[in-house]
């Protein structure tokens, strides 16, 4: 008999649980700080925070290797951190600095690190779906057993290219996971209005692939569902879709007055829908990790974010000639 560390969850050892906690905690701390820095004016442009959805990116990417791919969205910081992108390089990127992951040329909506299989945040809603179908095709053709995961929002689920991508993945039987994060909103429009069937996973299933709905604040539920889908994809079983039900603790972008939300809604969600609190309660209750170990991680994460901010603030902006580089490889 195998010993289960977490009674109702999948088998994860202490090290994995601490890794999950560290990742979620890093995302939360990163996003909180990015919000503060944005309000201070040290981050240009606009930026979309991932707070509340940490369990999803974390659970997905813990099922992936560096050689697997993810394609992200405009709300991509969490996906990037979970896939292993360097936090310091990300912050510098978001501040437009030369030391950024993309030399400051991409920004918040275009953080990418191909060496980690992170195919980029995306400024075009639904943009990653066909790219991930292509990454899946590449993995299949090259015989790498690699898998590609496309993160898509509830709003993004309505883009035509997403429908086409699902069908193409089914037709070509590709190792792709369509990972829907249903946080209830696309900008200021509710999911219940914009998705006519009210059921993103059901719609995905109709394309002819296994599809299920999971509780996105339950790290273990997401982990389990993704594990099945990723293993199936690796074994040549074709694409799957998962719809993780979640929320958004902040506005669509930092500075969004959120008039479309009810008074007290966010406060209530913070109390009831916090995936990190839920995770901590669970792992402490079944004694799979110690409070001390979690506190140790808190300290380390906070120090890392502080250091990343300081270094990013001090880093130089790109040199003027960088404007003209990287358009082509040869020209």
């Amino acid at each position: 008999m195998t010993r289960r560390k977490t009674p109702s969850g999948p088998q994860l050892d202490t090290e994995q649980l601490l890794h999950a906690y560290r990742t979620m905690r890093t995302i939360r701390a990163f996003e909180t700080r990015v919000g503060q820095e944005f309000e201070k004016g040290t981050i240009p442009g606009f930026t979309h925070l991932y707070s509340a959805q940490e369990a999803i990116a974390t659970a997905v990417c813990m099922n992936l290797l560096d050689s697997d791919y993810i394609g992200s969205t405009h709300r991509g910081h969490g996906h990037s951190i979970a896939k292993g992108c360097d936090v310091k390089g990300m912050l510098a990127e978001i501040m437009g600095k030369a030391t950024g992951l993309c030399k400051g040329k991409g920004g918040s909506m275009h953080v990418a690190d191909l060496s980690k299989g992170m195919l980029g945040a995306n400024g075009i809603v639904g943009g990653s779906a066909p790219l991930c179908v292509g990454a899946g095709l590449s993995a299949k053709t090259r015989g790498t057993r690699g898998v590609a995961v496309s993160f898509i929002g509830d709003g993004g689920s309505n883009e035509g290219v997403v429908f086409e991508s699902m069908n193409l993945a089914v037709v070509l039987k590709l190792p792709v996971l369509f990972m829907y994060e249903n946080n209830g909103y696309g900008e200021a429009t509710g999911f219940s209005y914009a998705v006519g069937s009210g059921d993103i996973s059901g719609r995905a299933g109709a394309f002819g692939m296994p599809a299920e709905k999971v509780d996105g604040k339950d790290f273990f539920a997401v982990y389990k569902a993704v594990k099945v889908a990723v293993e199936r994809a690796r074994d040549g079983g074709g694409p799957s879709a998962i719809e993780a039900m979640t929320t958004r603790f902040g506005g669509h972008f930092v500075g969004d007055p959120q008039l479309y939300r009810a008074k007290g809604e966010v406060e209530q969600l913070r109390r009831e829908m916090d995936c990190i609190t839920e995770f901590v309660d669970r792992v402490l209750k079944d004694k799979s990790v110690t409070r001390k170990a979690l506190q140790q991680i808190d300290t380390e994460v906070d120090a890392l974010i502080e250091e990343a901010v300081e270094e990013a603030l001090a880093a130089p902006y790109p040199a003027p000639e960088e404007l003209f580089t990287d358009v082509y490889k040869t020209y």
């Binding site: 900008e187 200021a188 429009t189 509710g190 209005y193 914009a194 959120q258 009810a262 008074k263 809604e265």
Partner: peptide, 20 residues
């Protein structure tokens, strides 16, 4: 267009965006 009013299917204000 997208969010030319805003607030559809939400529980807050109806005229929440008025376009991006």
């Amino acid at each position: 267009g997208e969010d030319v009013a805003g607030g559809a299917g939400c529980s807050g204000e109806d005229d929440a965006f008025g376009g991006a």
